[in-house]
Design a protein around this nucleic acid. Structure first.
Lengths: 240, 240
DNA sequence: ATTGTTGGATTGTTGAACAATACTTCAATC
DNA sequence: GATTGAAGTATTGTTCAACAATCCAACAAT
């Protein structure tokens, strides 16, 4: 009796993926579409067409919309429908401010965080370099996201991790508004490597300094490109 | 022509509160109930009863559930329903880690943030002291939350602000699990005052140091109380 | 060119229906 | 006596059809 109980206690934690609802499945699907850019920013998602295509009722589809709306991947306009979020230059600034708030203190406190979390940062860099070698630009971008996710994870809060994932997902939308996945990610790989190196050597301040300039230049680059684009397409595109 | 256009440009931004959907209204209602403790942690929210009580269909109610589930105020169990989230001691730790990540760097960077944001911190303290004078313990708790919200807002990111609001809303649940609104908030008022004073004087490091000890002691106090409670009610309460 | 008006399309919301699942109860078994 | 097994019940998961509310585009009127 007690023997079996002990065995049960030793069993792996409830890592068994719980059965997910239809709404969550559809939300997962749409999320990847949005993040991967298959659904471009600004596109409207018709309830009727999507419910027919994915064979779910309009009601469950709407549940999925609510989930993704809360993640800022979709925006809901009353009586007009849901659209893939199209970030503005103001959003870009806010996103980078949020990243500064999350990533910099996490890096500064890296000395007190477990070694495997620092290793996770390193493996993200490795993955990025592998992707670069294979000229897989999209995977390179994903690895870059993973890198910054790993940086925020140094803080050790699951809630912060989730928030960071959202921030990065929304950042991907920024890259989709202007489409330049390769040119924007390429020069940052070496930077990531340097940041990880400093972290591994326990020099958190250097890592933080590098990260600061990284974020600053990246933001400046994006914002200028964005503002130019916004000027160009003023009233050219429909003002969703 | 151009004259009228100019006038229009000068008009206040679209601060006009958009018409909200039924689902959002219900979500707002339920949110206040959960935060105010009228719906205790662990309570199950019956779709049938709630839809009848608030005169909305089950479908729109479920949309509201999705919204609140994403805010971690409700938890959704497949085929079992939604429950008011009941945080564990592990959640308490995670919440405080998240707050450390958000509040401390915001305070440290207070020198570069606008003066009105620092004033907002001060007015939250004022409000807390007024509430204390009137022995309105609940409002005192709210003011304390506002205080920390204002601290995080020093960072100047709307996304961080919203995240912080969620974190604090969830923290209220922690206070509801054990119910001691007065004793827990009372000693912290003086602390808040000191933190704001240091901020107003431009001494960000002192403010950060005070905040650190504040968070540490608050967390320790809550966690110990929590663990004791969890030990006591092991398998007494149904393991939702 | 601006301002009404109208009709069509889409969303917002409802109510009922049925399927799928979890919980409860109670009998059967070791 | 505790565990297992088998209904039965209650609740959620999901769909569907319907209608109201609203937006939008096209056209008419000024």
């Amino acid at each position: 009796m007690t023997a079996t109980e002990d065995h049960i206690d030793r069993l792996p934690e409830p890592a068994l993926s719980r059965p997910t609802s239809q709404a969550e499945r559809v939300a997962d699907l749409l999320r990847t579409f949005v993040i991967d850019g298959e659904l471009a920013p600004g596109v409207r998602l018709s309830e009727e067409k999507l419910s027919r295509k994915y064979e779910v009722s309009r009601n469950t589809l709407r549940e999925a919309f609510r989930l993704l709306g809360h993640e800022r991947l979709l925006v809901h306009h009353m009586h007009r429908g849901v659209f893939v979020n199209r970030p503005t230059s103001e959003d870009v600034r806010d996103l980078f401010n949020a990243r500064r708030s999350l990533e910099l203190p996490a890096v500064r406190g890296a000395a007190t965080s477990p070694a495997d979390r620092v290793r996770a940062v390193g493996s993200a860099v490795d993955e990025g370099e592998r992707a670069r070698a294979e000229r897989d630009w999209w995977r390179m971008g994903s690895a870059n996201m993973r890198f910054h996710e790993a940086l925020a994870a140094l803080a050790g809060s699951t809630r912060v991790n989730e928030f960071m994932r959202q921030i990065l997902a929304e950042t991907r939308l920024v890259f989709h508004v202007m489409d330049a996945p390769r040119e924007f990610h390429d020069p940052y790989l070496k930077w990531n490597r340097r940041i990880h190196l400093a972290l591994a050597e326990g020099d958190a301040e250097t890592a933080a300094a590098e990260l600061t300039t990284y974020l600053d230049t990246s933001e400046r680059q994006l914002v200028t490109a964005f503002v130019a684009m916004e000027e160009g397409s003023r009233s050219a595109r429909p003002p969703i």
